[in-house]
Simulated assay, not measured.
Amino acid sequence: MRTLTATHASRGFSELLDRVERGETIRITRAGHVVAELRPVAPTTGRALREALARTPGLDDDFEADIAAATSLLTTDESDPWRAG
């Protein structure tokens, strides 16, 4: 893992991003202390999203009823309320 000062990182940011894009993890220091770590982002997929949503609890009945009640108040009036009439 490569370590750079914040000054070095800012001066060569484009090159830094190229290295991260190629899979390298880079630590950034300021005043001798590590303050950040840049690493490639893990790719995400629709499957991962579906799996995460499947683990999420559904809405409770009262909340779902509140949403339905609020939605029923919506109108299909598509006139511009800001337009002088």
Score class of each variant (00 low, 15 high):
residue 8 H to T: 15
residue 14 S to L: 13
residue 62 D to R: 06
residue 49 L to E: 09
residue 38 L to H: 05
residue 70 A to Y: 02
residue 17 L to D: 05
residue 13 F to A: 09
residue 26 I to L: 15
residue 26 I to Q: 14
residue 15 E to T: 12
residue 23 G to C: 10
residue 40 P to K: 01
residue 4 L to M: 15
residue 7 T to E: 04
residue 81 P to I: 00
residue 65 A to P: 08
residue 62 D to K: 05
residue 47 R to V: 14
residue 73 L to M: 10
residue 14 S to N: 10
residue 2 R to P: 01
residue 69 A to E: 07
residue 26 I to K: 14
residue 82 W to E: 06
residue 55 R to F: 02
residue 74 L to M: 12
residue 49 L to Y: 08
residue 31 A to P: 03
residue 14 S to H: 12
residue 53 L to N: 09
residue 7 T to Y: 02
residue 83 R to Q: 11
residue 50 R to T: 11
residue 65 A to C: 10
residue 81 P to R: 00
residue 20 V to N: 01
residue 50 R to K: 13
residue 9 A to L: 01
residue 59 L to P: 04
residue 60 D to A: 12
residue 69 A to W: 03
residue 50 R to V: 12
residue 14 S to Q: 12
residue 22 R to D: 07
residue 1 M to C: 03
residue 48 A to T: 11
residue 8 H to W: 09
residue 34 V to Y: 04
residue 71 T to G: 08
residue 74 L to G: 07
residue 47 R to T: 14
residue 7 T to N: 02
residue 69 A to T: 05
residue 31 A to N: 14
residue 20 V to Q: 00
residue 56 T to N: 01
residue 70 A to S: 04
residue 50 R to Y: 11
residue 31 A to T: 08
residue 61 D to Q: 15
residue 48 A to V: 09
residue 16 L to V: 11
residue 29 T to A: 00
residue 77 D to L: 02
residue 84 A to K: 02
residue 44 T to P: 01
residue 76 T to E: 13
residue 52 A to S: 10
residue 22 R to E: 08
residue 34 V to C: 07
residue 78 E to I: 06
residue 61 D to A: 15
residue 74 L to D: 07
residue 9 A to Y: 01
residue 58 G to E: 09
residue 79 S to R: 14
residue 41 V to N: 04
residue 75 T to G: 01
residue 74 L to F: 13
residue 80 D to Y: 09
residue 63 F to N: 03
residue 22 R to G: 07
residue 51 E to L: 09
residue 24 E to H: 10
residue 47 R to C: 13
residue 30 R to F: 08
residue 54 A to C: 06
residue 34 V to I: 09
residue 85 G to D: 01
residue 34 V to F: 04
residue 56 T to C: 04
residue 78 E to F: 05
residue 42 A to D: 15
residue 81 P to F: 00
residue 58 G to I: 05
residue 31 A to G: 10
residue 55 R to Y: 02
residue 39 R to E: 02
residue 23 G to Q: 11
residue 31 A to Q: 13
residue 81 P to A: 01
residue 40 P to C: 02
residue 83 R to K: 11
residue 1 M to L: 07
residue 42 A to G: 13
residue 79 S to E: 09
residue 80 D to E: 07
residue 43 P to E: 00
residue 81 P to G: 00
residue 47 R to S: 15
residue 32 G to A: 15
residue 47 R to Q: 15
residue 10 S to F: 04
residue 64 E to R: 14
residue 67 I to L: 14
residue 55 R to S: 08
residue 41 V to K: 07
residue 25 T to R: 15
residue 15 E to R: 10
residue 10 S to G: 04
residue 25 T to C: 14
residue 56 T to M: 04
residue 35 V to Q: 04
residue 19 R to V: 03
residue 6 A to D: 09
residue 23 G to V: 07
residue 59 L to N: 08
residue 54 A to I: 05
